[in-house]
């Protein structure tokens, strides 16, 4: 793996900056107002969802709109197991439950490509939501459940940990043999299958891995919700937002999704209470404009500018692609 250590060496400045930012973020709860912690927690939560989305959909080009399903499974895990299990175990259970669900959805959707995959995953969220809703009302005779509350600072640290794990995973996966297989699927799936790559396996496993992280995030952040029901837990916006945030930030490297998530969740924080419609309008408009004029997102733009300024010759800006 000389290849790997070389890439690591080349990226030392980036790694140094990341570690510094991480240290700062870790110190935040010690010196800032509780509100800042909540704000950052929300940003980190969207960063985690967006990174998870990009982990699978970025390289493979399959647009998954099932994020809300895995997030919801995480939330329900917290609601059911939060009282009986310690936080780390409960969070892991949320991740594993999502992982299993993703294995099932992934195995079923293998034959679907392009937008058929997207609308199938979208429908899976609605199906789960509706069935759960019906089940709660007619079988359990209740609607929704309370969730155990856990201190914001704790949740903040757990989500921060998830984000770091995700960034490290994405970074190393991308440079591994497995990561190459993933991007070859996005590039030309037929060719990938015919040169010996088990595309089925790679797709399903990556989908499940990405969902594992989404489940962890759901189980962790659910503890700040007080009360949940199927419509809160399986809100389709949790499918749309990460997708848009990733596209806006760009999926060329690990920072793109984080940037996208940070910008939009910050905007959301400041707009959603006072001008809720303005937020959604901006969100939709930015998405349209990004798809039209920034096909590689903010990261792609930065890369282009950098190449222009430095006249760099290895322009490896990867482009967003769809099967």
């Amino acid at each position: 793996m000389t290849n790997l250590s070389m890439t690591v060496k080349k990226n030392i400045p980036y790694i140094a900056i990341s570690v510094l930012i991480l240290a700062l973020l870790a110190a935040v709860p010690f010196f800032s107002k509780p509100y800042t912690v909540v704000l950052l927690k929300n940003i980190l939560m969207f960063a985690a969802l967006t990174l998870s989305w990009a982990l699978f959909s970025g390289p493979t080009g399959y647009i998954s709109l099932a994020t809300a399903a895995f997030y919801g499974v995480g939330i329900y895990t917290a609601a059911y197991l939060g009282k009986v299990l310690p936080l780390p175990v409960m969070v892991l259970c949320g991740g594993l439950a999502s992982f299993l669900l993703a294995l099932i959805i992934g195995a079923i959707t293998l034959r679907l490509r392009g937008i058929y995959f997207a609308i199938f995953t979208l429908s899976s969220v609605e199906l789960i939501k509706q069935v759960l809703h019906w089940f709660e009302i007619t079988v359990l005779g209740t609607r929704g459940r309370p969730v155990v509350k856990i201190s914001n600072t704790t949740v903040y640290y757990v989500v921060l940990l998830i984000v770091v794990l995700l960034m490290v995973t994405t970074y190393f996966l991308k440079r591994s043999r497995y990561g190459l297989a993933m991007s070859s699927i996005g590039s030309c799936e037929d060719a990938a299958a015919h040169i010996g790559i088990n595309v089925t396996w790679v797709k399903v496993l990556t989908f499940a891995l990405s969902s594992f992280f989404i489940g962890l995030t759901g189980a962790t952040t659910a503890t700040g919700l007080i009360y949940i029901d199927s419509h809160i837990a399986f809100d389709l916006n949790y499918s749309f937002f990460p997708t848009l945030m990733a596209i806006f930030g760009g999926i060329g490297n690990v920072f793109g999704p984080v940037i996208g998530a940070a910008v939009f969740s910050y905007l959301r924080e400041i707009l959603i209470t006072r001008f809720p419609y303005a937020y959604m309008i901006i969100f939709g408009a930015v998405m349209i404009l990004t798809i039209l004029y920034l096909p590689n997102g903010i990261i792609g733009l930065v890369q282009t500018i950098k190449d222009k300024v430095l006249g760099g010759k290895d322009a490896t800006a990867s482009s967003r692609k769809v099967n």
Binding site: C188, I197, K321
Partner: peptide
């Protein structure tokens, strides 16, 4: 059916 974004070397390396 090649991998258009990858270099020629990477294409062959995939094989």
């Amino acid at each position: 059916k090649i991998f258009p974004e990858m270099t020629v070397f990477q294409n062959v390396l995939m094989g």
